[in-house]
């Protein structure tokens, strides 16, 4: 059984049919990419799967269980993590604290114990600080373990989002354009980071415009165009697909 099963998924915003009857499935442990021109519905797809939006119709199943319409905080509990195309970093917190927030569900969130400086909470927080610093090193943010988030450059914040998502210890990680706005060197580093994450057994779902990166990284690729599924398959299959060549690559060439 596939890890994630999407069946006949649609959503409309007023008159805009952002996604129409999209179906596909993602097996556990692979790197799965979603590509398509601007406005194709890639981010909308991520928003539907992670519970930020509720579909107009269709089904989303995780391990066979229907999850469409469930709130994001519940899906987080089931092992879903994501980053955002438009950065969603908490600039009112330190970099390390942003990563620590990723571990939210693994912590004792009791208000009264927190206010009383309960020893178990202090100890767990001290360990978590080390864990978060380790994750920051893992994504290449060694230099920023003591930084405030609002003092960090854009490229570093992109990685910070990945570190926060990894702090959730997810089973499936959605990355929405992790290399957007990065220079070629930084893009190569993100490429290497995604491989490192995938090697730990996390299923990675990637939206990315950098075709070289997508083609070399992905086990399978979904192509969207105007909210519809244009093609799906391995990199080689997608590259040779007549629809893709006509509609997508043609438009970009």
């Amino acid at each position: 059984m596939a890890l994630l099963d999407i069946h006949d998924l649609s959503i409309a915003f007023g008159g805009v049919k952002a996604l129409q009857h999209v179906s596909f499935s993602i097996d556990s442990g692979i790197v799965y990419s979603v590509i398509g021109p601007n406005g194709a519905g890639k981010t909308t797809l991520f928003n539907l799967i992670t519970g930020v939006y509720t579909p107009t119709s269709g089904e989303i199943r995780l391990d066979g269980a229907a999850i469409h319409g469930r709130p994001p905080n519940e899906l987080a509990r089931r092992g879903m993590a994501r980053t955002f195309q438009n950065l969603q970093i908490c600039l009112n917190m330190t970099a390390l604290e942003n990563v620590m927030v990723g571990a939210h569900l693994r912590l004792d969130r009791n208000l009264v114990k927190a206010a009383l400086r309960w020893p178990s909470i202090r100890r767990r927080d001290a360990d978590l600080r080390d864990e978060a610093a380790e994750l920051m090193r893992f994504v290449g943010l060694d230099r920023y373990t003591r930084a405030r988030a609002d003092s960090m450059p854009y490229g570093a914040l992109k990685r910070l989002e990945i570190a926060r998502a990894l702090a959730m210890k997810p089973r499936i990680l959605f990355l929405d354009e992790p290399a957007a706005g990065l220079n070629p060197t930084e893009t190569l580093e993100i490429d290497a980071l995604i491989r490192k994450v995938a090697a730990t057994g996390v299923t990675v779902v990637l939206v990315e415009h950098d075709m070289k990166m997508v083609m070399s990284l992905s086990d399978r690729i979904l192509v969207l165009d105007y909210g519809r599924k244009l093609a799906e398959g391995t990199a080689a299959e997608v590259r040779q697909d007549a629809n893709v060549i006509a509609a997508y690559l043609g438009a970009h060439a």
Binding site: P72, N73, I89, C90, M93, N98, R109
Partner: peptide, 21 residues
């Protein structure tokens, strides 16, 4: 504390804090 960080996080980004749980 975990409670306080969640509180500050929802101020910083509601969608990000929802998505982490």
């Amino acid at each position: 504390s975990p409670f306080g960080r969640a509180l500050r996080a929802l101020h910083g980004s509601e969608v990000a804090s929802k998505v982490v749980g």
